[in-house]
């Protein structure tokens, strides 16, 4: 917690995907902080407590200096005398957080998040990994099923508003040409990542109608959702030539 808001960071046990969630202080009814605070919490316990709240309830999160627990108070909005309190004990993760250095990315595309979710889902049916290429003309997401030899390909073309789907007969790649409305480009870049983790990242589509994909050669892929209250980022470690 800092004076700007709350930053949440979590990583899967295989260190393949790291999620960073920033919630600005402007998304809270009130936000008070004496000094920066870093807490390590078991995410399932926190989720269990927060799920006890109804959509209209008021949640107050509190932790004191040198606290060992985060206290979550849940209040019914029209019955403020009705309060339930839950403590989520801190855990020791061994380190506070990972420092993610800000790097200049070589290429970025922004696409509709629902299309991105469909792309991830469909390519995951084909293969455990996919190649993402961003070139001057656009972006290409390709997956190959080694067993059957089937290849799936989604192409995002720059400044095109066509939206068509080509089925794969005679081994031609099936592809969707999708309107892509924002992009920056510095140099041609390609990365290979696990489709499973891309599917996971693409499921956050309800947060924002747009999603950005940022790449730099030999660096983790960044999948980013920007929305009014903050930003959600997924860093996915690439698969590299051994």
């Amino acid at each position: 917690c800092s004076k700007e808001g709350i930053m949440l960071q979590g990583m899967d046990e295989f260190h393949i995907s790291l999620v960073e969630f920033f919630l600005s202080k402007r998304s809270f009814e009130s936000y008070a902080l004496c000094h920066d605070l870093c807490m390590s919490l078991p995410i399932d316990s926190l989720a269990t407590v927060l799920k006890k709240a109804n959509d209209d309830d008021v949640c107050t999160l509190k932790a004191g200096h040198k606290a060992k627990v985060l206290t979550v108070a849940i209040e019914t909005r029209d019955q403020p005398w009705l309060v339930s309190k839950h403590d989520v004990p801190f855990i020791d993760l061994g380190s506070e957080y990972l420092v993610i250095s800000r790097i200049p990315y070589d290429a970025k595309i922004t696409v509709w998040s629902t299309r991105f979710a469909r792309l991830a889902h469909e390519l995951h049916q084909l293969s455990g990994s996919l190649d993402i290429q961003i070139i001057h003309e656009g972006a290409r997401f390709t997956a190959l099923d080694e067993g059957s030899g089937k290849k799936g390909c989604f192409i995002f073309r720059r400044a095109k508003v066509v939206d068509e789907y080509r089925d794969s007969e005679d081994d031609e790649p099936a592809g969707a040409i999708i309107h892509e409305f924002h992009r920056y480009f510095h140099k041609a870049t390609s990365l290979r990542v696990s489709t499973k983790y891309l599917v996971h990242a693409s499921k956050r589509a309800p947060l924002s109608s747009k999603v950005s994909v940022l790449m730099k050669e030999d660096q983790p892929l960044l999948v980013q959702y920007d929305f009014y209250e903050g930003v959600l980022k997924f860093y996915i470690a690439p698969r590299i030539a051994d």
Partner: peptide, 14 residues
């Protein structure tokens, strides 16, 4: 051969 890289190769714990 393609290997899955580890995020800890890129980012260091504080």
């Amino acid at each position: 051969l393609v290997a899955q890289s580890d995020l800890l190769d890129y980012y260091k714990p504080k």
